[in-house]
Amino acid sequence: MRIVIAEDLAILRDGLAQLLTLRGHDVVGAGDAAELERAVAARRPDVAVIDIRMPPTHTDEGLRAALDLRRRHEGLGVLLFSQYVETRFVSQLLAEGSAGIGYLLKERVADVDDFTDALHRVAAGGTALDPEVVTQLMAPRRRDAGLASLTPREREVLTRMAEGRTNAAIAAAFVITERAVEKHVANIFTKLGLLASGTDHRRVLAVLRYLEHR
């Protein structure tokens, strides 16, 4: 395979390039997004291995470059290789077509053969996603599903909770018992997946979840 590795840490970039070269691959390195774009244009690789946070700001340059490269180079496989799970642009990347997309976490790749296998899958148009990445990507959908499962009365109770009302005030507003409100609140916690915890205030978390999706 022809591979471009975009990684600003020279030791990691050169070490990975050497390992892949020893396995018969044609590898070139890039230290930032600009070098990555030039290398892809010149070498026409089968797959680009891209770190998410790259110079100059070390925020999302790699992700932005991946989005741009996928749009300009049809068939290019992209394997994001990072120590961070960043879902904002990854969701957009997958939404534009999941064929030839991978996302692996550096600290969870312990075997070079597993890594090269992931590269082959991505280059061939398949996917290679770390389970933790999948979990993070699916989390917003689970939150939406939890809110969607609330009954009309439970949504009304949650709305009043967001207004800062106590259970007693909610009971008075709906002309129901405070015990009935407590049952509604318990159902809300269950459906939103908010388990009892000594460190988290479930009422606040439920309200935050509601406000996120208004």
Rank of each mutant, 00 (worst) to 15 (best):
L119H: 04
Y84L: 12
R108V: 00
S98K: 15
K106L: 06
R108M: 04
V112G: 09
T116N: 14
L93K: 08
G75H: 06
R108L: 08
A110V: 14
K106Y: 09
F115R: 03
A110F: 14
A118R: 02
S98V: 14
F81T: 06
V112P: 09
E86I: 11
G102C: 03
E74K: 13
A95R: 12
G97P: 04
G100S: 01
L105D: 02
L119V: 02
A110H: 15
L76Q: 03
V78T: 07
Q92P: 09
D111N: 07
K106I: 04
Q92Y: 12
D114W: 11
S91E: 14
Y103K: 04
D113M: 13
D114S: 11
L79A: 04
Y103E: 03
L93G: 05
F115T: 01
G77S: 02
I101A: 08
L119S: 04
A99R: 11
H120E: 14
D111R: 11
E96K: 15
V85M: 12
Y84S: 14
E96L: 09
L79H: 02
Y84Q: 14
S82C: 01
D114N: 11
V85P: 07
A118V: 04
H120G: 14
A99S: 12
F89M: 13
L80S: 02
E96M: 13
E96G: 12
F81S: 06
K106H: 08
F115V: 03
A118I: 01
G100V: 01
Y84V: 09
L119W: 01
V112A: 10
H120T: 12
D117P: 08
R88S: 13
G100Q: 00
A118F: 03
V90A: 12
Q92E: 15
Y103M: 06
R108K: 10
E86T: 10
Y103F: 05
D111M: 06
I101F: 09
A99W: 08
E74A: 15
A99L: 07
L104W: 02
L119E: 03
Y103Q: 05
S91K: 15
L76K: 02
Y84W: 15
G97T: 05
G102D: 04
F89V: 08
L105P: 00
F89S: 10
T116A: 15
G75K: 06
G77R: 01
F81K: 02
V109H: 04
E107P: 10
V85F: 13
H120K: 15
K106F: 05
R108E: 03
V109M: 06
T87Q: 07
R88I: 07
T87F: 08
L119K: 00
V85H: 11
D113I: 11
Y103A: 00
V78I: 09
R88E: 11
E86K: 08
D114V: 10
V90H: 08
R88D: 12
G75C: 05
R88Q: 14
G102A: 05
F81C: 02
V90Q: 11
L79K: 02
V112E: 11
S98Q: 15
F81V: 04
L105N: 01
A110T: 13
G97Y: 02
Y103N: 03
F89I: 10
A95D: 12
D111C: 07
T87K: 09
